[in-house]
Amino acid sequence: MPSDAETKAEAARTRSAWLLSTPALIVLLFAASGPLLIVLTYSFLAPGQYGNVVWDFDLSGWIGILYTRDIFDGTLKLADAHLSIFWRSVKLSLMTTAITFAVGFPTAWFIATRAPAQRAFWLFLITIPFWTNLLIRTVAINEVIRNEGLLNTSLIWLGVISEPIRIIYTDTAVLIGMAYVYLPLMVLPLYAAIDRFDMRLLEAGYDLYASRWRVLRRVILPIVKPGIVAGSILVFVPSLGAYVTPRVLGGGKNMMIGNFIELQFGQGRNWPLGAALSMTLLVVVMIALLIYVRAANKEGNPHG
């Protein structure tokens, strides 16, 4: 039997442990779980006439993700517009990830193979865009690709084209914008992985009859894979929820999930649908991450 003193000391220790973890608990409760719980709750309520919610249990938010109610006979129909928005979001995010990898890998390789003193300079150039507001950067891209923008004016002046190429307010514009905005998020983890790569392994690969392409495929890529995984996640996740870029470069029509959610809380006045869409996006991202990390681990450790 523990003595009274021991029990008291134990209780005091427990109390102080709870006390010490209070700041962390407060942050978790109010900054992370709290808002999520509110969004989750709202998704099960009825929409109010002028926005906000009515406190009645209602699944129409969740149903509204995939179906729309016909205004005349009230039957449910599959919402093609919603599906095309989801598909565009996933497609553009995957393409953004692929483009940032295609551009980012050579860039990261270039930086990692400079003299150590020069690397800081190149990394500095990569991080400069972070200092500028996202909206301003996106408007700058708009300025480059719009019909009377830098690109079209130059091409016409050079005589390559006679009519401006319409890029602005298309999926291509959104893709260009997102690839530009998220490129540093791909380059930095790739750089970190390539920097750790032992360049002497290249010679070992060439020596053992591997062509340049096979050295890349069989030696470099598998070894820098953690960097590729990290970079892809860092690009794919914010791309999927992108809001500013599709808004500025995609115009009103080429919406992505982010814009669609915003629409529900704004003009759409359907907060439960917006909340349900937010939760769906969250779950999709989490599932995508799990699949991706699992696959990456499995391939990296065939015998582990």
Binding site: D198, R200, L201, E203, A204, G205, D207, I223, P302
Partner: peptide
């Protein structure tokens, strides 16, 4: 073929 001073074994392979 070469045996390298640092061995240069491929760390991702058995």
């Amino acid at each position: 073929n070469t045996v390298f001073q640092s061995y240069a074994l491929f760390p991702h392979l058995t």
